[in-house]
Design a protein around this nucleic acid. Structure first.
Lengths: 361, 361
DNA sequence: CTGAAAGCGCTTACAG
DNA sequence: CTGAAAGCGCTTACAG
């Protein structure tokens, strides 16, 4: 907070008046001179109430600013909360935001609300949040899992809790999942670099215990193996999770002796790509060393060169997840379903730089 | 969805087993051979239960996978849902994401959950969502308002609903607010361009009925007036709300006859800045025409030239909002509070291009 | 230390 | 067409 941030008090009334109690059905019934069952009928638009009483109840409800308590209604009806729980990595990152938006859109159509929160790759928090959401009687859970064991959810699922995993499959649990083609997408990215003529392609990877990171590494290895190029461990950097660590890893690769230094980089995730591009720009190598990133990046087409990426479609992933979730909520009891959303290579320039290409300085 | 997206069924059991009912306190009590009041005491960790009974209740609860129903507990206790409602413009945009993250962080500390949704500048949806959240007994509401009248919330607030408005003040309602220094920030941006030597500065604005857009326009006008430069309506484009309309508006400005064409652009919002930069790049004018944007943009430092912006701090805005909200939830009944979070000019190059500067082609 | 009764705000299942 | 009684899952206010 900077020194010019300020708080001012309204000059209006020094008090917001007496704290009125919120009106209940009983209050409305008393004012309208009917039983609370009649108020219930009017509020729920059940047929068979005389026009006279409907009018009196509606007038009383309006006068008292009556709002039905959905929580009490659901309790008596034996329903859940008409609410979905969404457990993301970080609500502030664009991938999470797009998944959230897809869930939000689908929930609105069904009159459901969405509890959304960040897990920050913390398995303890994953379990706490799951518990907190279940205690609030959510109808279903959509989870980007972070822990190494999701079996703690089995009893809940057996008791009818709809659950879908996104981005990464659950462990020690059989459940619906929606994932991207991580391995094939990474393989495609590296094959693209190989086709351009690169032989020395570095891998910049996220935390190795994240399933998607491991899959993307496999795709990288697959592509090299298919072409008969041996995998050089000196070109592999893993356990990067922030922009800064990625940038430093990229710089260390670029400083390698010329005969073993990479001519191309494969950055296996969003922030890693940004860190690596930063390193290339800092050393003015952005036109000399190729890079392909996994995940699209905002403004990737306006950088120079444009950033070639393997793009995921997080909105489509979220939409697929909520479809599977609603199927469960609507009573589907069959075997778990697994959807795969394909990635797409987006060519913009940085991945098409040829090895040691001569550029006018 | 592309042709390679697929769904596969798990080969495991064709059915997830019988649908067990979720265990209640009554079930636990029966299994443990105690009254439900004793179960309640153990679950709530009330003192004064014999170790023997505690053990039996805990064992029974574990065996039945018992989860307390917070909803029923809150109903009886006369408490709200231990949940906050967060009404954003669009959960997928970075501003909303950062505000959400700040609220998420603060809510976690207090054991509260967050219902978050997108309003999409739709006043009807604003009212529907507010109602849906109130019906779920939220403890408080944080709202980026979109409608032109928020007085519909007055009865709720009088009945004790904590409410804070963010980014834009409410209308026809006295309530806590957190806003950025929109007018002063815009004025500073335009003064910066004037100091660099620009006289013909165009304004690219959002929908005019959005309060922040109007404030930023006032800041633009303030800066011109203070310097004695007449405001030229031909250089003002408003009611832009998407990247594409902003790009077209910027192109129309750049096509103006040389004697009246702008030498600098002030883009009053995120997407508008991106659209305008796109227009500059398309016509290869990015080194000839200056631009300052309101709101920081991702990778703004890696474009060429870097993008000079007036940055807001949406995380700080969200944190201030949730502070005011918790003060209300904790019983503050005084006059409404208004916090102002200051913006910051971030110089990166695009705003320092001098008028008609000669550049080597 | 333990539990039976009543009630949170609402709806179900009946009766009139 | 209307309403009194009972109950959803839990806690309060008592009594023993």
């Amino acid at each position: 907070m900077t020194s010019s941030d300020r708080t001012t008090l309204s000059e209006a009334s020094g008090d917001n008046g007496p704290q009125r109690r919120r009106a209940t059905m009983r209050d409305v019934a008393a004012l309208a001179g009917v039983s609370i069952k009649t108020v219930s009928r009017v509020v729920n638009e059940e047929p068979g109430v005389s026009g006279d009483l409907v009018g009196r109840v509606e007038a009383a409800a309006r006068q008292l600013d009556y709002r039905p308590d959905l929580t009490a209604s659901n309790l008596r009806r034996g329903r859940q909360a008409a609410t979905l729980g969404l457990m993301l990595e970080d609500v502030a990152n664009p991938y999470s935001g797009a998944v959230h938006r897809a869930v939000d859109d689908a929930a609105i159509e069904r009159g459901m609300a969405v509890l959304a929160t960040s897990l920050d790759e913390d398995p303890v928090r994953e379990r706490e949040v799951a518990r907190a959401m279940i205690q609030r009687r959510v109808d279903g859970l959509i989870i980007v899992p972070t822990g190494t064991d999701q079996s703690y959810l089995r009893p809940e699922m057996e008791a009818g809790l709809a659950t879908v995993f996104v981005d990464r499959p659950p462990r020690f649990l059989d459940a619906d999942t929606v994932v991207a083609t991580n391995r094939a997408g990474a393989q495609g990215a590296v094959e693209h670099l190989l086709a351009v003529g690169h032989q020395r392609i570095a891998f910049l990877g996220d935390l190795t215990d994240i399933a998607t990171a491991a899959d993307r590494y496999r795709g990288y290895a697959d592509a090299l193996q298919a072409t008969g190029i041996p995998l050089d461990e000196r070109l592999v950097r893993t356990d990067l999770h922030t922009r800064d660590t990625a940038q430093r890893a990229a710089e260390s690769l670029l400083r390698l002796p010329a005969e073993i230094a990479p001519t191309a980089l494969f950055a296996s995730q969003n922030l890693i790509t940004i860190g690596a591009i930063h390193a290339l720009h800092l050393h003015d190598l952005q036109h000399l060393v190729a890079i392909v990133g996994f995940d699209d990046i905002e403004l990737g087409n306006m950088l120079d060169p444009g950033v070639t990426v393997v793009a995921q479609d997080p909105y489509a992933i979220g939409r697929a997840a909520v479809e599977l979730l609603f199927a469960r909520i609507d009573g589907y009891r069959g075997p778990s379903q697994h959807r795969t959303i394909s990635t797409r290579l987006v060519i913009r320039g940085s991945g098409e730089i040829r090895p040691r290409e001569v550029v006018t300085a």
